[in-house]
Amino acid sequence: MNTLTVRFGPLSVRMPWRLILTNGVLLVLTAALVWSGLFRGSYPATPGDLLSALTGTADPVTSMILLENRLPRLATALGVGLAFGLAGEMIQTLLRNPLASPDIIGFSAGAAVGAVVTVVIVGGTAWVVPGALIGGFIAAGLILSLSWRRGVSPGQLILIGIGVTLTLGVLTDLLLTRIDTTSAAGVMKWLVGSLNARSWTDAGSLWAGLLFLGPLALWYQFMLGRIAFEQDVAISFGLRLNYGRVLTIGLAVALVGLAVAASGPLPFVAFVAGPIAHGLNGASRPTLLSAALVGALVTLSADMASQSLPDGFGLPAGVFTALVGAPVLITVLVLHSKRQRL
């Protein structure tokens, strides 16, 4: 028995034990990271402090650090990681390509151009986030509409995505050479993605969107696995293929948009979450929950690493998402191949 079957009246769900175990472990690890992020660090605190801060009886310093500083930052990191993980897994499954990531729909590339354009126009980095969101949605819309031919086909989408994304990427690089060094350094930091000094407004809008889109995405997992079949197979199942594909892309773009607004592009999280989750589950079907949790783990540990550096090395979290994610992906790859050979 390596699967658990859960029945609710007429409905039943089959869940492999391994999946349950993986998700459980990931969940515990995530919780542990949040815990240590909240209570450890340069200003140690206890759960009791948090309680008294919540009820308003703690001293002002403790309550400011916990409530205004650490909680919103952790909430943002957690939400961003979950959103990138979900979006990455959805796109990789839809396009059936391990190299795909939400980047291929152009959101990140458009966001980067938008961000740099605001710097060129305004001269400072104040309008980076709105510019990025506008640029991102325009680019995603452009790629979708260009690849539309009586519906969306993955092959078409990938090629159009490459063309548009690369052109936008070069546009960013080109604009970067045309602004002064100080602004370039500022934009560079944003392009890498940072979780420094997040407020409740960042965390609030992120989680409001996530609480709406996340369950939708998880529910939709049932359909996603079949959409990824060969076109003919999927159609003969009676799936509304185009509807499903557009819904997947729409959900992924919305999730990435939320995350980018909160933290900047944070490269690599969306790309790495899916393959790691698959390796851990030993599964070929979509595992949205595991991917989301892996995304959260990578983001949280990257943020922690960026905070634990000595002063003067102000490296944003985006640098560490790759430093944390890449070795994990490599380990999973190596383990995976050893098992295959046995």
């Binding site: 560079m188 690599f268 790495v272 944003p316 640098v319 998402t321 790759a322 994610g325 890449a326 490599i330």
Partner: peptide, 17 residues
């Protein structure tokens, strides 16, 4: 992809510093 990202991350950190 993993190695490229790793090297790119090191590159970025130097660029920011």
């Amino acid at each position: 992809a993993a190695i490229s990202a790793l090297f790119l991350a090191f590159t970025w950190s130097i660029l920011i510093l």
